[in-house]
Nucleic acid binder design. Structure first.
Lengths: 332, 332
DNA sequence: CAGCCGAGGTAATACGTATAACGTGACCAG
DNA sequence: CTGGTCACGTTATACGTATTACCTCGGCTG
């Protein structure tokens, strides 16, 4: 009725529990004869034996499980980060369990208890990193994703080359003749967005104009923000640099409602390169962020930390993908 | 150096380990004095004590952890299912760990080992349900999502009212005067899509025309499928019923490339009501599927099964959301 | 024939927790 | 003064596994 234990297998096979453990653990070269080994294996499968992970974890003192802290999985970017992390984890016999930190305000409840399993380490996305440290996450090996390198201190971190991405955006737009910019920025206050904003303002020359509007990461948020910004009496921006494809899509829509054509009257760029970017029309010019690679490197970094190996890696490169939402600046 | 155990707390507080366990477990009304209880609590926090989950799980014989098997998290629908399941789980002190079954072809590797923790139960989305049973998932309490009620047998299942959703779609389109339909169906061979196809073909009257084209769930897939279908010499369909918003968005795009306006020349409907549906233009008329509720009910069903309570619930209702991608059938 | 060795196993133990079963005084009733 | 009860804890044990240390016995060496 109840699940068979290694001892059940042992008695059924007429050997000791230790032998079962040795055989199934693959630790029997020279300790157990081939004959009994195969007999044990056969008995185990016959009984449908599955090792009790809780017991094994207790014994080994390690669960081979990492906690990934992300704001929201419904954001495709983080879903892809998870996918990458889970893949690398699986290759090393690790598992990944998720802790969604609501609204990027940091963990609402104790993530270490919420993860029902004991944890070997933590991978935290930028929005939650410091909040996590405050809770005491630093008692566990920690890897931070897209976090301020200065604040990260000694902790391993995996960053995207956000500033370089912004450089590619501005160079593209400047080459197209744009001089009046609107930065449609995320309302979330994380290093990622801070780094982008800073890069943008330093990259633009003195003969340019830059306004910034912050908006929640929803299409509606983008639309209302845009309406306010474009309705302003003074010279309209000709290029909208958005922190996110969702914002960019909303911006395109808002522009068209105001009678502006994209990209003829207005150029729009995004970040992330979500599936959305090629689903809308015009297809978005956007900075492709290799989200899976962020997850992969995050997990790789954690594995390195767990082994005691020092871990460093250059920022993950990002590339601007030019599509149909950007064009030459309109001539007045 | 190493993490403190309950025994460490006990010696530090000058009591026995059992007392620590009782106090921290909240089982001390009348067994421990208020004075020592608070002293123990204080010592525990001072030492930064965290219970070893592996040990607790072993002792209790339960991990309060469920496995959620879904095809891919990057599909917003399943990300939302997870979110709902995780919320209800958290309310009951449960955790949810994910097993992404690649391509809906079923688990590639043993999911029970991949989940590094012992499991209390499994919630499997339709695509993987039977594959899961084949592996031996039926040794664990099982809840199936969107699976064939006939095949589900005695297992608890949570289904969306797909047939009713399709009814709403067809009624809407028929009322608009459409008679020639194209079903842009998913290439995935699951009950969900089978149920929809069957519903569609039985709901359409004899004076109508229905063709079916299957396509992978990507924008490009939809585009090529559409091009083939609309280029056909015989009478073009005036309404495209898509199994998915992604397909619908692709269909709209393909139509426009062929010089057809949506919805004036061609009506398009979707399923799911993803964020995409309101991001594209025209905004999609689509069947809203309450994905979070699927997750919530799935978890609730599992909790009921674990308690031995019989669990049944009516199909989760779905509602057609009429937006801008459907309109009156063109008059020839 | 004593001694030894290696092959093939087994017995014992620890991991950290939750809980059932069992003290132990103090205080009070008889 | 004795027995009982209650308040407050403690001792002991089990969960299922991995691993260390030990055992046994046949064969081989000297």
């Amino acid at each position: 009725m109840t699940r068979p234990t290694s001892r059940d297998v042992a008695t059924a096979a007429g050997v000791s529990q230790a032998t079962v453990s040795l055989v199934l653990g693959g630790k029997w070269p020279g300790r157990v004869s081939e004959r009994t080994a195969s007999h044990v294996r056969e008995t185990a499968t016959r009984l449908g034996y599955r090792p009790n992970l809780a017991a094994r974890n207790l014994r080994l003192g390690s669960t081979r499980t990492a906690l990934l802290v992300v704001p929201a999985l419904t954001n495709e970017f983080f879903a892809r980060v998870y996918t990458g992390a889970a893949r690398v984890a699986a290759e090393h016999g690790f598992g990944v369990v998720l802790y969604p930190s609501p609204d990027g305000t940091g963990p609402a409840r104790d993530p270490f208890a919420s993860a029902r399993a004991a944890l070997d380490g933590v991978i935290a996305s930028s929005m939650a990193a410091h909040a996590l440290q405050a809770i005491g996450g630093d008692t566990l090996p920690l890897v931070m994703l897209d976090s301020d390198p200065a604040a990260a201190g000694s902790a391993a971190h995996v960053n995207l080359a956000m500033a370089d991405g912004m450089r590619q955006v501005t160079e593209h737009l400047l080459a197209l003749g744009h001089r009046r910019f609107l930065h449609l920025a995320s309302a979330v206050d994380s290093w990622t967005f801070h780094a982008r904003a800073e890069a943008l303002s330093t990259l633009l020359g003195p003969d340019t104009e830059l306004r910034t509007v912050r908006s929640p990461l929803t299409p509606d948020g983008a639309r209302t923000a845009m309406q306010a910004a474009l309705a302003a009496p003074q010279g309209r921006p000709t290029a909208i640099v958005c922190d996110d494809d969702i914002l960019a899509a909303g911006a395109c829509k808002a522009a068209r409602r105001l009678g502006l054509r994209v990209p003829e009257d207005l150029s729009v760029t995004g970040f992330d390169d979500l599936a959305l970017a090629t689903a809308v029309e015009p297809e978005l010019t956007t900075v492709h962020l290799p989200a899976e690679r962020v997850g992969e490197q995050g997990m790789a970094a954690l594995l390195a930390v767990l082994e005691g190996t020092p871990w460093t890696a250059p920022d993950i490169p990002v590339t601007l993908v030019v599509r149909d939402s950007t064009g030459p600046a309109p001539t007045p």
